[in-house]
């Protein structure tokens, strides 16, 4: 029971948006799809939901080829970056029509959440501000109840309070293991604690696909006098180094040594730091 992508490629006018991407999302986990802007995150999600067709490769949902199939596509609800409601539709109408389409949609919950966020029910969807447009779409996705829920840049235009509310609600309503969640974002710091499994994408290629723990546990930073640090990192896979005066910091792949030489400080790496190091390493290539 999973969304599977097999060797999916897509290009737009000769530019490779996705190159030979193979991934699997399932098991009621919360996935983070992380990458800088323009990495191909939205293209990937649009292909899963059949808004776009891949140039080559397969998309399977619970083992069934998804493109063009109602049953497979109906299992996925995506909070897209864009609004696909008719121009004349009002917020209330958008909630109601979603209930028409999706049997598992919890209209009562959606109404309650809309009220919590202060969504103006009588306003036209098209006339909503960026923030409220995001809120409407995330209220719909939080209430969808489908086996797979995708959030594409969910907190775009949201203020701090509403972002906080969203993360809580996400854990409360989609974190129970009954739904597989894909959270696509470039705001890694905020999303990191929520994510169980991270997929890191850049330039249309998957750089890492592993549990968040594995990724952050797979690297550490050492700080200390340059000479000591150089000695420590010799023969290790180094992601990047920075130096200020005689003080040097290195991000190193793998577990730290059981015995760290005195004078060196070792700390675990957050997902965001890992991500930044990885991006720097890629840019340097």
């Amino acid at each position: 029971m999973a969304i599977e992508l097999k060797n999916v490629s897509k290009s737009f006018g000769g530019v490779h948006a996705l190159s030979d991407v193979s991934l699997s999302f399932g098991g009621g986990k919360i996935y983070g799809l992380l990458g800088p802007n323009g990495a191909g995150k939205t293209t990937l999600l649009n292909i899963i939901t059949n808004r776009l067709y891949a140039d080559s490769g397969e998309v399977l949902i619970d083992g069934e080829a998804a493109p063009g199939r109602d049953r497979a596509l109906g299992k996925v609800y995506m909070m897209a970056e864009q609004n696909l409601f008719p121009d004349s539709m009002k917020v209330k109408g958008a909630l109601k029509i979603t209930a028409d389409f999706i049997p598992s949609f919890d209209l009562e919950l959606a109404m309650e959440l809309a009220q919590k966020f202060g969504l103006p029910m009588g306003k036209k969807v098209k006339a909503l501000s960026t923030g409220y447009s995001s809120i409407l779409r995330l209220v719909l996705a939080l209430s969808a109840g489908t086996p797979y829920v995708i959030f594409d840049e969910p907190v775009l235009g949201l203020d701090a309070q509403h972002r906080d509310m969203f993360y809580r609600l996400l854990m409360e309503h989609c974190g129970g293991g009954g739904q597989t969640v894909i959270l696509s974002t470039h705001l890694i710091q905020e999303a990191a604690p929520l994510i169980e499994h991270a997929v890191i994408i850049k330039g249309g290629r998957i750089l890492r696909d592993a549990s968040a723990e594995e990724l952050t546990g797979a690297a550490h930073t050492v700080t200390g006098p340059a000479g000591l640090v150089d000695g420590y990192i010799a023969g290790r896979q180094v992601l990047n180094t920075t130096a200020i005066g005689g003080l040097k910091t290195a991000c190193v792949e793998g577990e730290p040594d059981a015995r760290v030489p005195a004078g060196l400080e070792v700390s675990a790496m957050g997902l965001q730091d890992y991500f930044i190091s990885l991006m720097n390493e890629e840019d340097a290539k």
Binding site: I30, R168, M171, E172, G175, G176, P193, I195, E196
Partner: peptide, 14 residues
């Protein structure tokens, strides 16, 4: 678990 996960905004598995 759910209460902790929601209140602290952390993954339920964590």
């Amino acid at each position: 678990i759910t209460e902790y996960s929601a209140a602290l905004k952390i993954n339920p598995a964590t």
